[in-house]
Design a binder for these strands. Structure first.
Lengths: 189, 189
DNA sequence: GTCTTTTCTTGAACTCGATTAAGTTTTGGC
DNA sequence: GCCAAAACTTAATCGAGTTCAAGAAAAGAC
């Protein structure tokens, strides 16, 4: 849980008392591989800080196949903000790709925490700015580069990550079929 | 400027004094067609609330052509948060598509405003959540639907908007060529 | 009003990546 | 260690959308 405190401290100043309040109001939770933090049609009840592990956020598209829109890794928050804040059913699944540990911030506790520590409201504003910018960047990659280029870019940026998750998930995240990914890899070797 | 106050009030409670502070610290500005609020390589200095008009946020891609990643319309904020917050050169242009009016929140004033009115920090957190969710939704559309489907979806959602902006901008936003858009339209009629 | 610039259209050739339908390899449960 | 399930590969065919090039129409400028 110290990783969470360290992360928040990179963005805003916390007193010792603040840190204790945060630790007392958030839950540590272990998540097994393939376990879900959120399922489609359920209302999202918490924001999760990933202490360790990998999560994927996906939905079932028109054709009935899984489409990954986001990977959550160490030191990122993962949730469906739209469902969480507006208390509406989510369109997404959030599932552990490998065994993981998270810090859980329940939505009812969140308000209490913001009231006690206003700096946290700022922290989340900054986190969201970062997430939003990353999402814009993602759209850029989709538009600017071919599937092959996106794959090389991704594998250069996260080489170790590529080893940890199944290829069909990478293909889904990058927006093409597993068959096409096979073809790209065959070309290279 | 009352539209801005009305908008903020939809998300958080403001006292009369708060409203006065906001109005006193923000600038009203008229923007002519084709004028820029931000250019690539410049550091973004403000967040703009669109009172009236349409803006496009775009960049120059690898091949040297303009790629629109976002349209800003009435009652939305538009800026490059990454550049604004981290004080780094922007990758984007923000340009008025038609004559417009904006409320300007300078980055130096922003901190002052947050200090005086903590509710605003919350307001921007909520705005960003919404923008982030919209961006995710955008990625979904790109992955799930064909160019033709995206066009019909867009034209059903914003029929009047379609009349106001050149078609090549719509094509760029939807992620295909103007030629292809022409073909889609030819089919329909 | 005419002239220039901007925007839109049309058609032919081409390409990236999807689809389908095998077969192969790897992983995990017991 | 064995078997089933999950993950990956290969190859042929097909289609959505690009590219290039040229011309038509619309919108500003003076």
């Amino acid at each position: 849980m110290q990783r969470l405190i360290a992360h928040i401290s990179k963005f805003v100043d916390l007193t010792e008392e603040d840190k204790e309040i945060i630790l007392s109001l958030m839950q540590y939770q272990e998540v097994k591989k393939k376990e879900y933090l959120l399922r489609q049609d359920a209302v999202c009840n918490a924001n999760y800080f990933i202490l360790k592990g990998v999560f994927r956020k996906y939905y079932i598209d028109e054709k009935g196949s899984e489409q990954i829109i986001h990977f959550g890794i160490d030191n990122w928050w993962i949730t469906d903000y739209d469902s969480l804040e507006r208390r509406i059913p989510s369109q997404y699944f959030i599932q552990a790709v490998e065994g993981a540990e998270v810090a859980v911030l329940d939505w009812r506790v969140q308000e209490e925490l913001f009231a006690k520590i206003p700096a946290l409201e700022r922290y989340f504003r900054l986190i969201l700015q970062r997430a939003y910018a990353a999402s814009m960047q993602r759209i850029r990659y989709i538009y600017d580069f071919s599937g092959e280029e996106r794959y090389y870019h991704f594998s250069n940026l996260y080489p170790e990550f590529l080893q940890r998750i199944p290829q069909y998930m990478v293909a889904s995240y990058l927006g093409f079929t597993p068959e096409f990914l096979s073809k790209i890899r065959a070309k290279k070797i």
